[in-house]
Computed example of a mutant assay.
Amino acid sequence: MSRLRQLRDALGYSQVKIQMLTGIDQSDYSKIENGKRHMSFEQCKRLAVALKTSMDYLAGLTDKPDPYPPARRR
């Protein structure tokens, strides 16, 4: 099971809910989740926010799903 699917299931979100939160078309998201399509940088960013994780986790660069703390505004 993909990390996207695990996170989505853990939050109780449907693919349609992901579409509403990110603006990524449900059919495109389904292809990303099933490994039939790569996500863009912008899509990865939107998904990380919606799924409450980090882009590094979605990219497989870390095994820690916790999001990073928000950046401080100056």
Rank of each mutant, 00 (worst) to 15 (best):
I32L: 03
L7I: 14
M1R: 14
P65D: 06
Y68Q: 12
G23K: 02
G60Y: 08
G12W: 08
A59F: 04
A59P: 00
I32R: 12
L4R: 15
L58G: 00
G60L: 01
D25Q: 00
Y68H: 11
T62D: 04
A10P: 06
Q26G: 00
P67R: 05
Q15I: 09
I24Q: 03
Q6E: 15
D66L: 09
A48D: 13
R3H: 11
R5H: 14
L58K: 01
I18R: 09
I32Q: 10
R8K: 05
M1Q: 13
Q19I: 00
K17E: 13
L58M: 01
L61W: 09
T22D: 06
R74V: 07
Y29H: 07
L51S: 05
S40G: 12
K36P: 00
A10D: 11
D9C: 05
Q6I: 15
L11M: 10
T62K: 07
M39T: 02
I24H: 05
K36D: 00
D9T: 11
K52W: 07
K45T: 07
M1Y: 10
Y57D: 00
V49K: 13
M39Y: 10
L47P: 05
L11P: 02
Q6Y: 10
T53P: 08
R8P: 04
M39A: 12
G23Q: 01
D66Q: 06
D66S: 08
C44H: 03
G12L: 04
F41T: 08
D66C: 01
V16Y: 15
L51K: 00
A10T: 03
R37A: 08
K64I: 08
K31L: 13
L58E: 01
R46W: 14
P65V: 02
T62H: 06
M1C: 09
K52H: 10
T53I: 05
Y68V: 10
D66A: 09
A48T: 14
Q6G: 14
L61G: 03
A59K: 01
Q19C: 01
R46F: 14
G23T: 04
R37F: 05
R5L: 13
G23C: 02
K64E: 11
A48K: 08
K52E: 10
Q6M: 15
Q26E: 07
P65F: 13
Y29V: 09
